[in-house]
Design a protein around this nucleic acid. Structure first.
Length: 428
RNA sequence: GGGGGGAUGCCCGAGUGGCCAAAGGGAGCAGACUGUAAAUCUGUCGGCGCUGCCUACGGAGGUUCAAAUCCUCCUCCCCCCA
């Protein structure tokens, strides 16, 4: 997967078209802004016209697998796009892929994912919907589970489905062909996924399906399948995969480069601040709901040097935190950040923990043990290393000697700092 | 069904009997610097109160004073032929 660049996205305002009513064209521009592919060309535009003529809203489909309990900003990109359809009066159809999750989607992985139990899926689905509600208007969304129609499928119906495509067509998928050429395994099961996903589109009669760019193949696969079932093939819209805080890989929990929608304001703020500078515009575009014009203006001011990048990033972080918490929390997070990182002071709220008796020996405390006990280090060795590298402070004084035993009364009420951002006050 | 190749630490990947807790890179962590938890540079990176010991190179046995390295069986993956 390549690094995403702003120029990959559809951001240019094309000239208005005389054959299309202006307001519809505006909506269309809005819907394709920030997307990578809108296929077939002009198909969505055409549908918007039909929708007007027939007086019915379009059905915009998004399928999600409830495989992970928490969602992060990477997931919100597509949800924002779906929410945009709602904003323009269309129907958001959110499909919870409970059936597909139960089988265990092996896509893109060398190992099969563990099968999830019904309870896990239910929990994940519930939290997903809860968290998605921060972006999507759930009152007006249609939420369905694909087990509803996939579970009762009979073998002959499955066979009919498999007959709609060919192996050669399957191997066109970049993911499959590259794994195939790299001698990595592809199970037959994986071949079923695009088909089942396409069948979902049949079941909900989708007008347009949204997905990440990695879903392009699957989304397109839905078209011939819909046709085989006598439906008008769906339009597809892809949004870029969000690059994570490391600036190179897609945002994912497994890479640890994610910003969760339930992260605390301070965490969320800090994580946004940790993205590389050249990712800022992308984040403004995909994560803030900022208009096209606003993003352009920001990009220009930063490029011109009239808007300091550090300031721009602070504003970005504050904006994002505000979306998932509130503006008060967002500005507090900003103050906290400046306090801790810009001015190198302690944060306002320092977590507290009692001194465990297991760490005290003859009235003295060996710091590495305490750090392990307090989860500030994974092992004694790591704790000692941190101390030796000058990364540990007790009441703002760098601890130098990792062997020294410290008197209990010096530790009690004291603040242990590990690295730049982990603080802990020890209480009796 | 036949033949061949492969499995190494969080990830990638070197290592074909002792010099191996295992090169190199990436990620992570710490320090310096700064405009931020950006960038860059430096250090560090299995566990143990640690001049030593324990656990680890897919799994189980074996050979040897000594095994990631050799042998046997097993599991999984890939390729070629059919």
């Amino acid at each position: 997967m390549g690094i995403l660049h702003d120029e990959d996205m559809n951001m240019d305002q094309a000239a208005p078209r005389p054959d299309i009513p202006n307001d519809i064209y505006e909506v269309y521009q809005d819907l394709i802004s920030g997307t990578v592919d809108a296929l077939p060309t002009d198909d969505l535009l055409q549908r918007l016209v039909w929708a007007r003529e027939q007086g019915r809203p379009l059905r915009a489909k998004l399928g999600v697998d409830p495989t992970a309990p928490d969602i992060h900003l990477g997931h919100t990109v597509i949800l924002r796009k779906l929410a945009q359809f709602q904003k323009h009066g269309h129907t958001a159809v959110l499909i919870i892929g409970d059936y597909t999750a139960k089988v265990g989607d092996p896509s893109g992985r060398s190992k099969l994912r563990p099968r999830l139990s019904d309870e896990e899926i239910n929990i994940n689905a519930t939290t997903y919907v809860e968290q998605a509600a921060k972006v999507l208007d759930m009152e007006r969304a249609e939420v369905v589970r694909n087990s509803e129609w996939l579970s009762p499928l009979r073998m002959d119906e499955v066979l009919k489905l498999t007959a709609t495509t060919t192996v050669a067509r399957m191997l066109e998928r970049d993911d499959f062909s590259s794994r195939y050429s790299k001698n990595e395994p592809i199970s037959m099961l994986e071949f079923m996924y695009p088909l089942l996903q396409g069948y979902d589109s049949v079941a909900v009669k989708a007008d347009v399906e949204l997905g990440g760019t990695d879903q392009k193949f699957n989304l397109l696969m839905g078209r011939p399948i819909m046709e085989a079932y006598g439906l008008l093939p769906q339009s597809i819209l892809t949004v870029p995969l969000l690059v994570g805080t490391d600036g190179s890989m897609k945002m994912s929990k497994t890479y640890g480069n994610y910003i969760g929608v339930t992260d605390t304001p301070d965490d969320m703020f800090g994580k946004v601040m940790s993205i590389p500078d050249d990712l800022m515009v992308t984040y403004w575009t995909l994560l803030t709901g900022a208009g096209h014009r606003e993003v352009e203006d920001i990009a220009q001011r930063v490029a011109a040097g009239t808007y300091h990048p550090a300031e721009c990033k602070r504003d970005l972080a504050e904006r994002i935190v505000g979306l998932y918490h509130d503006s008060a929390a967002a500005s507090a997070a900003r103050e906290q950040f400046d306090r801790v990182f810009k001015h190198r002071n302690r944060p306002e709220d320092i977590p507290e923990a009692p001194l465990p008796s297991t760490c005290v020996r003859e009235g003295r405390v060996w710091l590495p043990r305490l750090m392990v006990e307090m989860k500030l280090a994974a092992s004694n060795g790591e704790a000692k290393r941190l101390i030796q590298q000058g990364g540990v402070k007790l009441d703002d004084a760098v601890v130098r000697n990792s062997d020294e035993e410290i008197a209990v009364d010096r530790v009690l009420g004291g603040v242990i700092q590990v690295g730049k951002r982990r603080f802990l006050r020890i209480i009796p």
